[in-house]
């Protein structure tokens, strides 16, 4: 594992991708490599792109990569797609829209499957961000799976969250009220060629103006609403994505200037600690219980009402945590 982290720190792409894979596959001892790496992280600006399935997240990410490259940034992309609940397999389809960057050594794109995680990203995303970070990518873009209102784990990992909305989805505004408002630092109105884009823009703007404050922990930041030109107008599209890039960077600068970044980092780090605790404490126990079939015996007790989940959990805890 040390060998691997050494290579990653030297900038070896394959090794980095393998390390991310070890994290995804939960290979034992991967934490040793991460221990080496953790101290060197924290330099990159992490941008989350989220929104409904098919909203144009990947298409935007693709163009955003161009915009950042133009400015001299290096870019890492973590693109998350859903795992099939039936087979455990996945079609990782985001990457296909970003293929033109394949040979650009300043860009590293890695596709991840959710592997059953429900929050719109995969469990490995947080650590994968660290890996991208030590590869010295200055911008790390995380594209979530097409999410509904519940899948908002991205806020635990990104400094800036951009929420993509498109006209014609019917109940956008409802959704906004319900959840996305809470996580957005920037709203993007996409697919400007579609009927209703102007209307959606106005509605979103109204809503943003009505809400008192950014709930996402950035006091005083007025959530901007950006209308991105249609991808069908390539030149204008590129220009408006450059404007988006500048807005994203402005938000990051705002966090820094107003000492808000640390707050986000705290949240992010807390989430990571949670994950690590889960991984180190709970996971081995669960593995143990599964390995010797104990889990089935416990479940049997519940089915026959011989015990209840709370008592059993307490029993297990007292056995393992002496």
């Amino acid at each position: 594992m040390k060998e691997l982290s050494k290579k990653v720190l030297e900038g070896d792409i394959r090794a980095a991708s393998r390390l991310i894979r070890n994290l995804e596959d939960q290979i034992p001892n991967t934490y040793i490599a991460m221990q080496e790496i953790f101290g060197k992280t924290g330099n990159a600006h992490v941008v989350g792109i989220t929104g409904a399935p098919g909203a144009g997240k990947s298409t935007l990410t693709d163009e955003l990569i161009c915009a950042y490259r133009k400015k001299g940034d290096t870019v890492g992309v973590l693109a998350v797609d859903p795992t099939s609940p039936f087979s455990g397999g996945a079609l990782l389809g985001d990457r296909i829209r970003m293929l033109r960057h394949a040979e650009d050594t300043g860009v590293f794109i890695r596709s991840l499957a959710t592997r059953g995680a429900m929050g719109g990203i995969s469990k490995a995303v947080g650590e994968a961000i660290h890996v991208m970070d030590v590869l010295k990518k200055s911008k790390i873009i995380v594209e979530t799976v097409g999410v509904g209102q519940q899948e908002v784990d991205i806020i635990n990992h990104a400094h800036t969250v951009a929420v993509v909305l498109v006209p014609g989805m019917g109940d956008e505004i409802q959704a906004l009220k319900a959840g996305l408002m809470e996580i957005a630092d920037i709203f993007i109105i996409n697919k400007a060629d579609r009927d209703g884009a102007g209307k959606l823009y106005k509605e979103t703007l109204n809503m943003v103006n009505m809400s008192k404050d950014n709930k996402n922990g950035a006091q005083g930041w007025r959530i901007p609403v950006l209308l991105v030109e249609s991808v069908l107008e390539p030149i204008k599209f590129a220009e408006s994505v450059e404007a988006l890039r500048d807005k994203i960077d402005e938000h990051y600068q705002y966090l820094i200037d107003n000492d808000l970044l640390s707050e986000r980092m705290r949240r992010k780090t807390t989430a990571e600690l949670n994950e690590a605790l889960w991984g180190t404490i709970l996971q081995p126990i669960l593995k143990d219980l599964h390995a010797d079939g104990e889990i089935n015996r416990l479940v049997d007790k519940l089915l026959t009402k011989a015990s209840d989940p709370y008592s059993l959990a307490a029993e297990v805890a007292s056995k393992y945590m002496k």
Partner: peptide
């Protein structure tokens, strides 16, 4: 002028 279209690989 019109932009290049790449295979979106829908399957």
């Amino acid at each position: 002028v019109y932009g290049e279209y790449r295979d979106p690989g829908i399957y």
